[in-house]
C-alpha cells in the first residue's frame, strides 16, 4: 500500500492553539463594545458583565471551530439572546415579588430597571453640562428593544445590514425598519444638540 504525501499535506486538521489565538484576538477586539452594548440595554454593570461573559463562553465552547468570519454575527446573536434572557428574568422576578405580601405594591409587569425613577436631568441639561455622550446612551437605552439592538449593532459595532439581520435573527428589511425608527427617535430627542 502506497501513501501519497501530497494528499496528506493538503489536509488541514483543526488544532486548538491557532483557534484559541484567533478567538482571543477576536474577543479582545469586541469585548468593550459588547460590554457597552449590554450595559446600555440592561442599565446594570454586573448584569452586563455576566451577559458578555456568557456570550464569550458559549462562542468558545460551541462555535470556536466555525470559520472566524462567522464569529461576529454569532457572538452578537448570543449576546442579544442573553440580554433578553436577563430582561425576562427581571420581569419574572418583579411578577413574583408582586405576589408576596411584603412587596409588589402597585408593581406591574415591566422591567423594574425601566420603571426606576430616572435621576438624570434630561438631555438638554446633560448637553449643557458637556455630557452629550451620557444623554445619547440614556436615549438609546430607552428605545424599544429591537430598535436599540439594530441601532447599536449597526452604529456601535459597525455591522452591515446582513450581519445585523443575522445577529438579530430577522430579515434585512426588518433591520432597516428598526434602524430607521431608532435614528428618527434619537434625532428628535438629541438632533439639535448633535448637529
Amino acid at each position: 500500500m502506497s501513501f501519497c504525501p501530497a494528499t496528506y499535506a493538503s489536509v488541514t486538521l483543526p488544532t486548538v492553539e491557532p483557534t484559541a489565538h484567533a478567538l482571543n484576538t477576536f474577543l479582545a477586539s469586541v469585548e468593550r463594545r459588547a460590554y457597552r452594548m449590554a450595559q446600555i440595554a440592561l442599565r446594570h454593570e454586573e448584569d452586563a458583565l455576566d451577559a458578555v461573559q456568557d456570550a464569550m463562553l458559549q462562542l468558545a465552547r460551541r462555535y470556536a471551530r466555525r470559520p472566524s468570519e462567522e464569529w461576529r454575527p454569532i457572538f452578537y446573536r448570543i449576546l442579544q439572546n442573553r440580554i433578553r434572557d436577563l430582561q425576562r428574568r427581571r420581569a419574572v422576578r418583579s411578577r413574583v415579588l408582586a405576589f408576596l405580601p411584603w412587596g409588589g405594591e402597585g408593581e406591574d409587569d415591566s422591567d423594574p430597571v425601566e420603571r426606576a425613577p430616572d435621576p438624570a436631568p434630561g438631555p438638554a441639561a446633560e448637553v449643557e453640562g458637556g455630557e452629550i455622550g451620557v444623554a445619547l446612551q440614556r436615549a438609546v437605552s430607552l428605545l424599544p428593544a429591537r430598535q436599540r439592538e439594530a441601532f447599536l449593532l449597526r452604529n456601535l459595532e459597525g455591522l452591515d445590514v446582513a450581519e445585523t439581520a443575522a445577529a438579530m435573527g430577522c430579515s434585512e428589511g426588518s433591520v432597516k425598519t428598526h434602524y430607521s425608527r431608532a435614528v428618527h427617535a434619537l434625532r428628535e430627542q438629541l438632533g439639535e444638540f448633535m448637529s
Partner: peptide
C-alpha cells in the same frame, strides 16, 4: 471603560478560552 471593567472583561475572555481545549 475604566480599568476595573477592562480587567474583568479580560478575565472573562481567558475563562472562555479555557473552554476550547
Amino acid at each position: 471603560l475604566d480599568a476595573a471593567t477592562r480587567s474583568r472583561l479580560t478575565q472573562a475572555r481567558h475563562a472562555a478560552l479555557e473552554g476550547i481545549s
